[in-house]
Amino acid sequence: MDFGFRIAPSSTINLDKVDRTRFERLHEIEPDVYKCMACGSCSSTCPAGRFSGMSVRKVILALQRGKEKEAVRMLKGCMLCGKCSMVCPRGINTRHLILSICRIYNEEEQ
Protein backbone atom coordinates (compact mmCIF):
# COMPACT_ATOMS: atom_id res chain seq x y z
CA MET A 1 0.00 0.00 0.00
CA ASP A 2 1.37 3.37 -0.86
CA PHE A 3 0.82 6.03 1.76
CA GLY A 4 2.92 8.51 -0.14
CA PHE A 5 5.58 8.35 2.57
CA ARG A 6 7.84 5.76 4.15
CA ILE A 7 9.79 5.30 7.33
CA ALA A 8 13.18 6.83 6.73
CA PRO A 9 16.19 4.54 7.15
CA SER A 10 18.14 5.09 10.33
CA SER A 11 20.57 7.95 10.05
CA THR A 12 22.31 7.33 13.38
CA ILE A 13 26.02 7.93 13.19
CA ASN A 14 27.96 5.64 15.46
CA LEU A 15 31.00 7.49 16.70
CA ASP A 16 31.76 4.85 19.29
CA LYS A 17 35.32 3.61 19.01
CA VAL A 18 34.63 0.56 21.14
CA ASP A 19 35.04 -2.80 19.42
CA ARG A 20 31.71 -4.45 20.01
CA THR A 21 32.15 -7.62 17.95
CA ARG A 22 32.45 -9.82 21.01
CA PHE A 23 29.53 -8.16 22.70
CA GLU A 24 27.42 -8.75 19.61
CA ARG A 25 28.43 -12.40 19.71
CA LEU A 26 27.42 -12.54 23.35
CA HIS A 27 24.13 -10.89 22.49
CA GLU A 28 23.48 -13.56 19.88
CA ILE A 29 23.77 -16.34 22.46
CA GLU A 30 22.30 -14.35 25.33
CA PRO A 31 19.60 -12.04 23.99
CA ASP A 32 18.65 -11.33 27.59
CA VAL A 33 21.77 -9.24 28.09
CA TYR A 34 19.79 -6.27 26.72
CA LYS A 35 17.02 -6.91 29.21
CA CYS A 36 19.17 -5.69 32.09
CA MET A 37 17.96 -2.40 33.49
CA ALA A 38 20.92 -2.02 35.83
CA CYS A 39 18.79 -2.09 38.96
CA GLY A 40 21.61 -3.58 40.98
CA SER A 41 19.65 -6.33 42.73
CA CYS A 42 22.33 -8.77 41.64
CA SER A 43 25.10 -6.62 43.06
CA SER A 44 23.43 -6.23 46.41
CA THR A 45 22.94 -9.99 46.90
CA CYS A 46 26.26 -11.16 45.47
CA PRO A 47 28.37 -12.95 48.10
CA ALA A 48 31.47 -12.55 45.93
CA GLY A 49 31.02 -8.79 45.82
CA ARG A 50 32.43 -8.53 49.32
CA PHE A 51 35.71 -10.11 48.28
CA SER A 52 36.28 -9.06 44.68
CA GLY A 53 33.84 -6.29 43.84
CA MET A 54 31.95 -8.68 41.57
CA SER A 55 28.70 -7.27 40.23
CA VAL A 56 26.78 -8.62 37.28
CA ARG A 57 25.30 -5.18 36.65
CA LYS A 58 28.76 -3.66 36.36
CA VAL A 59 30.01 -6.54 34.24
CA ILE A 60 27.22 -6.00 31.70
CA LEU A 61 27.80 -2.25 31.62
CA ALA A 62 31.55 -2.69 31.33
CA LEU A 63 31.23 -5.13 28.45
CA GLN A 64 28.87 -2.79 26.62
CA ARG A 65 31.41 -0.02 27.00
CA GLY A 66 34.25 -2.26 25.87
CA LYS A 67 35.95 -2.28 29.27
CA GLU A 68 36.66 -5.95 28.99
CA LYS A 69 39.61 -5.98 31.34
CA GLU A 70 37.54 -4.64 34.20
CA ALA A 71 34.73 -7.13 33.49
CA VAL A 72 37.09 -10.07 33.42
CA ARG A 73 38.68 -9.01 36.69
CA MET A 74 35.27 -8.98 38.36
CA LEU A 75 34.18 -12.27 36.78
CA LYS A 76 37.18 -14.05 38.21
CA GLY A 77 35.62 -13.57 41.63
CA CYS A 78 32.24 -15.10 40.70
CA MET A 79 31.28 -18.21 42.66
CA LEU A 80 28.30 -19.08 40.43
CA CYS A 81 26.02 -19.45 43.44
CA GLY A 82 23.04 -18.24 41.45
CA LYS A 83 21.63 -15.74 43.91
CA CYS A 84 21.65 -13.04 41.23
CA SER A 85 19.42 -15.09 38.93
CA MET A 86 16.95 -15.55 41.76
CA VAL A 87 16.56 -11.86 42.54
CA CYS A 88 16.68 -10.50 39.00
CA PRO A 89 13.39 -8.66 38.40
CA ARG A 90 13.87 -9.04 34.65
CA GLY A 91 14.23 -12.81 34.89
CA ILE A 92 17.67 -12.91 33.28
CA ASN A 93 19.40 -16.28 33.62
CA THR A 94 22.56 -14.67 34.99
CA ARG A 95 24.38 -17.93 35.65
CA HIS A 96 24.19 -18.92 32.02
CA LEU A 97 25.08 -15.37 31.03
CA ILE A 98 28.22 -15.50 33.19
CA LEU A 99 29.22 -18.90 31.78
CA SER A 100 28.72 -17.58 28.24
CA ILE A 101 30.89 -14.56 28.97
CA CYS A 102 33.54 -16.90 30.35
CA ARG A 103 33.55 -18.73 27.04
CA ILE A 104 33.46 -15.76 24.67
CA TYR A 105 35.87 -13.38 26.39
CA ASN A 106 39.43 -14.27 27.04
CA GLU A 107 41.47 -13.39 30.08
CA GLU A 108 44.88 -13.77 28.43
CA GLU A 109 44.18 -11.14 25.77
CA GLN A 110 43.47 -8.48 28.34
Partner: peptide, 13 residues
Protein backbone atom coordinates in the same frame (compact mmCIF):
# COMPACT_ATOMS: atom_id res chain seq x y z
CA UNK B 1 34.14 -31.18 29.25
CA UNK B 2 33.46 -27.58 28.35
CA UNK B 3 36.37 -25.18 28.02
CA UNK B 4 36.20 -21.69 29.51
CA UNK B 5 38.58 -18.86 28.82
CA UNK B 6 38.04 -17.13 32.15
CA UNK B 7 38.89 -19.16 35.24
CA UNK B 8 37.80 -17.84 38.61
CA UNK B 9 40.51 -17.13 41.12
CA UNK B 10 39.73 -16.78 44.81
CA UNK B 11 43.27 -16.42 46.06
CA UNK B 12 42.60 -12.85 47.23
CA UNK B 13 40.06 -14.03 49.79
Amino acid sequence: LRQYNITPDYSMI
